[in-house]
């Protein structure tokens, strides 16, 4: 796993979409969208009621693999502000176990604005951590180095006649936009104008971590 040097910190993008901050033993996760399926079910689209469990099992796996002690969720952690109340028992047990054991912070996003921490952890709107600003949605004029989520960037390529589409990190000069971590979260083309606008001018690349290599695809010069 190859770290990336960003604003004086070594940050490691992981293949499943988490960002590992070794120096702090901290994991950053964006857009979990827990209970997205039940939100749709209430509106007549009965998506499988296992998305929260799947997402949280993935979180637990990456926590175990890295030995993280801190977890920062960069907003839209629940698909809506009541999502926390709808968590099925097994998913809830898994989550409360982690929030009790780890130093866990929920940054709120547009989907889960105003949600209460019925599942443990601390709820904040944004945070400044060792000089890095953590928030849900990138603020275009922000001069400080910033880590955010919100856009669910995904790289789509056509290689050898086959389409490949993969969650990716978008990295600009002062900003990193994380991919969505949630099991049922779709994606927006990494080169889409809203993402390029949010990440600011200058050189922008899409990063895809694979098991051996950190792949870098230039999006804008």
């Amino acid at each position: 796993m190859v770290p990336l040097s960003f604003a004086g910190h070594d940050l490691t993008p992981l293949p499943d979409g988490a960002l590992w901050w070794r120096a702090r033993r901290a994991l950053l996760l964006a857009d979990l969208h827990l209970e997205k399926a039940s939100w749709y079910a209430a509106r007549g689209q009965m998506l499988p009621p296992y998305d929260s469990l799947k997402t949280l099992e993935d979180v637990a796996a990456v926590v175990a693999a890295t030995g993280a002690q801190e977890v920062w969720c960069l907003g839209d952690s629940f698909h809506d502000r009541d999502g926390c109340d709808r968590l099925p028992d097994d998913a809830r047990a898994l989550l409360t176990g982690m929030t009790a054991r780890l130093d866990w912070t929920w940054i709120t996003g547009n989907h889960d604005a105003g949600f209460a921490d019925a599942c443990g952890g601390t709820v904040v709107e944004e945070a400044l951590v060792d000089g890095l600003l953590l928030r849900h949605e990138a603020v275009p004029g922000e001069m400080r180095p910033e880590l955010s989520g919100h856009f669910h960037p995904k790289l789509r390529l056509r290689v050898r006649g086959r389409g490949v589409s993969r969650r990716c990190f978008v990295v600009g000069e002062r900003k990193i936009i994380l991919p969505a971590f949630g099991a049922l979260t779709g994606g927006l083309d990494a080169a889409a104008p809203p993402i390029l606008k949010a990440v600011g001018g200058g050189a922008v690349s899409a990063l895809i971590p694979t098991a051996e290599k950190l792949l870098r695809f230039p999006l804008a010069a």
Binding site: Y40, P48, K54, H152, A183, L184, T185, G186, G187, L188
Partner: peptide, 22 residues
């Protein structure tokens, strides 16, 4: 700009893992 739908590939993966007899 924003994705309004969800990917059925992801639904497929989740369902296959948790309820393969669906």
């Amino acid at each position: 700009g924003r994705q309004v739908t969800f990917s059925t590939d992801l639904i497929y993966d989740v369902l296959r893992k948790y309820e393969p007899d669906h």
